[in-house]
Design a protein around this nucleic acid. Structure first.
Ligand code: FES
Ligand code: FES
Lengths: 144, 144
DNA sequence: TTATACTCTACTATATTAATAGAAATTGTA
DNA sequence: TACAATTTCTATTAATATAGTAGAGTATAA
């Protein structure tokens, strides 16, 4: 698993929308607060909208808001959607040319184990959990 | 952590040299058995040599062999050398522009935890362990 | 009507990945 | 010594992924 800038931006955006659940935030506001290039965030939000993580409202007081409650959005969902599979190597899912015999590959079990451990983290933490961490720890100075 | 083809090739090459510890194997032989493009493997082996994982012998009966005993080479060493840090995101090490305040970032602890768990696997398995797995499980059909 | 905001398609620049090419140097052996 | 097999070294390239940028169009509240 590798988190790109795009993924990082997406996660922070969903987190900010979770913290502000119920409100509608504009791309401009999100981009400014999170220090993300506006036009890049625009694209990311459109993708997140198409697959149903967020909804939007156009016009004067428009903006974005979560389509589901933060407790129903898992960290792993966003990661997988934006940055792809969490596996450390493609061969577990895709047709990987690297292995002579993928059913006997010594490394395969290791990649699986790493994948399982990673999944146990990212698929069991919701954005509600993250939001709570945020408020509990009183990250007052943090702009998110 | 993401394992590229280059990393995959390097790991399999070191494993094959571990299984054949004591022998000298030519690039040609390694490339053919492991199904790796010869000229690509050539480059990988040169890098592995420069940093001291393998040694070589030129000339007629030349080839490559391990510079240390397989028990002294950890999986994580090769991964890090060929494919870089095992962290899922660069911000833990490098200067990452993504975070407004990296000391308060909610995600940071998660990336650290994932890194630690991954390290616990790749930094505690030597190529001697992998070689033993190979022979124990009697992967007779496997060409490695 | 207008200002503000989302929508959509296309384009671009840079870096990474996965090789490929070819000439030079070394070494065992016939 | 000649030669064949092998490593060494530097450069180049093709394809893909990453991280944006540009601009015209559509919707909505006031
Ligand atoms: S490396 Fe994935 S099956 Fe071999
Ligand atoms: S994502 Fe790494 S410090 Fe925020």
């Amino acid at each position: 698993m590798r988190i790109t800038y795009k993924g990082d931006y997406a996660l922070k955006t969903i987190l900010k929308l979770s913290i502000n659940y119920g409100k509608v935030l504009s791309i401009h506001k999100l981009a400014k607060d999170l220090d993300i290039p506006v036009k890049f965030l625009e694209q990311i939000l459109l993708e997140l909208k198409r697959v149903g993580f967020v909804k939007s409202r156009r016009g004067k007081v428009g903006g974005y808001f979560l389509a589901r409650h933060p407790s129903k959005i898992m960290l792993g969902e966003i990661i997988r959607f934006v940055d792809g599979p969490i596996e450390p190597i493609a061969c577990i899912n895709d047709n990987y040319r690297g292995c002579n015999d993928m059913y006997r590959c010594i490394f395969r079990d290791l990649w699986k184990k790493i994948t399982e451990q990673t999944s146990k983290i990212v698929d069991n933490i919701s954005f509600e959990d993250l939001r709570r961490r945020f408020t509990d720890k009183k990250f007052l100075a943090y702009t998110i």
